[in-house]
Nucleic acid binder design. Structure first.
Lengths: 338, 338
DNA sequence: TGCTGGCACTCTCCATGGTCAAGTGCCAGT
DNA sequence: ACTGGCACTTGACCATGGAGAGTGCCAGCA
């Protein structure tokens, strides 16, 4: 028995099942693919594939459907990369080009990704902790209020307003601004946070309460988990494609979306390239019929955050992977230009 | 035939149907409510209510379910206001108290509202056009870049970075800042935008290109539709309660959520108090089995934006209305304190 | 005039059972 | 090593036939 043909059969099963959503039998498989052998031969191959755990039967007299292991094999070794059509490339480009700020880039990418893949799209906002400080501004408002603004390398702007116990002199504000700028610009945020702490000592004891208040708030902003974990979700209407059983197929995904922490874990710390997590590989019981395709994006070589899609395990992997990869590249480029 | 009793029957039908989700017949209705009459009498009343369009039968030999008109009557004249439990009040309070900025207030309210009502919750961000300018900052960054920051009365902070054709002098920046501040602080944003336009003339011709660039960007920020229409959505997992038929019950709602414009229309320009839109009253064909409960929220008497919930028409109106009202009041208070 | 008990009727729901088609496993033959 | 053939399994589909819930209506009663 030829090993090659057996893998061809597996590929054919995955492709047919993905497009028809129905268990595929030996006959209908031959109708769609020229394998040059008879149904009986296919049946033997199928039996072997089933023994090895790549496919299974929903019930005795039905066709076969791929298992998670089967999809995994398909993704790793059988799928041929499907290039995006020029129209799709253009769609991504024109859609993203109009963005005016980081927020807008994220919103738009989530839309375009959902539309391209017909799945639920997730885009994580550029991580604060992985960015560097580009600019810091300290501005006195009315009374003892002070506005702090941080601009990061990815173009993200974070601001905080605090109320001091006493109104600072203009000179002090200027001094604080320039020393903070000197200490932190160009640093990664976590490191900048450390530098700030060291800086308090360099001020006169009288000024320290004010300096401490400002520095503490900035430090919090630098290491703010909440804003580091922000994500945008889109394409939830595509949940229709997940299956007809609401409780087992759709509800778990909606719940995961509500729990942003779960979503972030799903996207995972994709180190660089495309990551595909199939069924139980997601590490969540309730998402066993779900697959996640994700990719890091960033400026040049440096990963800023992650984006991806969530769909049923029976998805068109080559197309989805191509779309996720392409959007990740474009988003990275957009943020680099900024 | 007593009109009073007929309305009692309608109330009983609504209450039973909401809690059981099944058509209610004359017998089971008497089991749960002491109406002091026989089933036959109830049947006569039901027939009359059906003639008037308040209830209907899904099929000949089934119980009755309320029509949109029936729910409307219930909401307008029959429902007794259900006060929130102390535990619920406390939940809202503790949940919202921890918020650090406007963004956080909105995120938290959407969560608490979804949890209280077990429905899909929607909160519109405080409207820019209905706020006043509290503070404006113009800061020179490196090169010819300038950072503009607007702080509104509701505590919202908008910022924009622009690149000028030429590096402005520090003196010019200071001048621009003070004149803009003078012209706009305390004004509503649309009016502030008008004032800005008039201001350009007061500068020396040489400075006008720079002033114009800054003023134009600020003006755009003041009247930015995109950020005026931002909304947060939560509790989508509660869509499970909408019904079992995905395509007719759930998908339309998901699609409405994707189309933020539709959502905003749904929330509507609730002028002040609680607004309830039932079924076709939403003005959307596909949402005919959906009801929207919304309320404006704001500082004191001034409406800032709207929040509410989307649920099936067979919802617990008194409870939902109480929750929406309470959250709206708390959110208004939170933003006023700011 | 309004309420009640009774009765025939209608319609959905569900369990039953039989047929059909798809698909399988296996075996003997090439 | 592949193929054709055949017996077998099983879910999907459909018609059938109670059972149960609920109705409308009528005649009788306060």
């Amino acid at each position: 028995m030829s090993d090659d043909r057996r893998l061809d059969v597996l590929r054919a099963i995955v492709e047919d099942y993905v497009s028809t959503q129905e268990p595929v039998g030996s006959r209908s498989l031959l109708d769609r693919h020229q394998l040059g052998v008879s149904p009986a031969t296919i049946r033997n191959d199928m039996a072997a594939l089933e023994d090895e755990g790549y496919i299974m039967q929903p019930h005795t007299s039905a066709g076969r459907i791929p298992t998670d292991k089967g999809y995994r094999m398909f993704v790793d070794r059988l799928a041929t990369v499907k290039a995006l059509s020029p129209a799709e490339r253009r769609a991504i480009e024109t859609f993203l080009t109009g963005a005016v700020d980081v927020d807008d880039v994220v919103q738009r990418s989530v839309r375009v990704l959902a539309q391209l893949t017909n799945q639920v799209a997730i885009v994580q906002y550029p991580s604060l902790t992985r960015s560097t400080v580009r600019h810091i501004e300290v501005v006195a408002l009315e009374g003892a209020r002070v506005l702090l603004v941080v601009i990061t390398s990815s173009g993200r702007v974070e601001q905080r307003i605090i109320e001091l116990v006493e109104t600072p002199t203009e000179h002090l504000i200027g001094e604080i601004r320039s020393r903070i700028t000197h200490a932190t610009v160009g640093q990664r945020l976590p490191e900048a946070s450390l530098r700030l702490a060291d800086m308090i000592e360099t001020f006169a004891p009288n000024d320290r309460p004010i300096v401490t208040a400002i520095v503490t708030t900035l430090s919090q902003t630098f290491t703010n988990e909440r804003s580091d974990e922000r994500i945008a979700v889109g394409g939830t209407a595509n949940l229709a494609r997940f299956g007809s059983d609401f409780d087992t197929a759709i509800k778990p995904v909606l719940e995961a979306i509500e729990e942003q922490v779960v979503l972030l874990k799903l996207l995972g710390e994709a180190t660089g390239g495309l990551t595909v997590r199939i069924g139980t590989e997601t590490g969540h019981e309730s998402l066993s019929s779900t697959a996640v395709v994700s990719s890091a994006y960033g400026l040049d070589d440096q990963a800023l955050a992650t984006l991806g899609t969530v769909g049923p395990t029976r998805m068109d992997y080559p197309a989805t992977m191509a779309a996720v990869g392409a959007v990740a590249r474009y988003v990275g480029r957009m943020l680099a230009d900024n």
